[in-house]
Design a binder for these strands. Structure first.
Lengths: 145, 145
DNA sequence: TATTGTTATACTCTATAACTATA
DNA sequence: TATAGTTATAGAGTATAACAATA
């Protein structure tokens, strides 16, 4: 049976997960906690409600993740300036530096992968992967409705 | 900041997971159990040790997954013909039919996604994604060593 | 001695429901 | 009355370590 495009894309997804898991094994970073840090790095400090919405996860779940990240010194709960019910979750300076480094490595990996593609194919591959991602996003959205 | 190739590939991986989770919500199929069924459909009946190796998970974990799938009637533990320590885990006939249908849908989705790519770009995209998957596999393997 | 699978234990991620404090 | 976050409880996935049965 031959290998479809979809098989290849699923394989790429699994390899990313394997790579991430291995890269952070023993550091206390788990995939779920990394997602929190990634969102905070990308969008800045936010409330737990906002985090829950961004991660598509329950507020209760966010409480647990932020508890763990606060205990390990990676994030800080600051009072919200205008709403005493809410807290602002922010990266600690040291963790912000770690995430900046990850962002650079992320860009390098992207370049390395594109480098594996024959130069004549690169433009088509970038267009094609964009089109696939858009089509898949539309399918998932339709299914949700 | 612009969207890299890597961002798109990560997005595709997340969309697949979201879609799978949604498609099987309420059916009792969880992602981990589906992986077991998928391997059995693909490679046929095998011991729990073999499953553990294939899934890259501990034998203890396989015990739990097979327990759950046996309780729900999706797999069956048969005695191993020559090794009384081992069991052969096999799909029940009904589940084998379900997995065949999934395999067909999988092929259809692959066709739908390729259809989203401009015809002139298709060959390059298939080559390029293959090259990316191979490069990534090599990187992960190097890191493991 | 080595291998197959299980029991025992523990941690993480996730969810729902009920509750407190604040808006 | 509605919203932000937590406590309580539960289930799934995962791991390590110790053990029984068999090879």
């Amino acid at each position: 049976m031959d290998v479809t495009l979809l098989d290849r894309l699923l394989q790429i997804g699994e390899l990313f997960q394997r790579d991430m898991a291995r890269a952070f094994a023993g550091t206390g970073f788990t995939p779920a906690r990394l997602r929190v840090l990634w969102v905070l790095q990308h969008d800045g400090a936010m409330t737990q409600q906002a985090l829950a919405a961004e991660l598509d996860v329950t507020p209760r779940n966010v409480s647990g993740l932020v508890d763990a990240l606060e205990a390990s010194g990676h994030v800080h709960r600051a009072p919200h300036p205008s709403d005493r019910r809410a807290v602002l979750v922010e990266l600690t300076p040291r963790t912000a530096r770690i995430m900046s480094r990850m962002q650079r490595e992320h860009a390098e990996l992207s370049a390395t992968l594109l480098d594996a593609v024959a130069p004549a194919d690169r433009a088509a591959v970038e267009r094609g992967i964009g089109a696939i991602a858009d089509r898949l996003a539309a399918l998932v959205e339709d299914a949700d409705a």
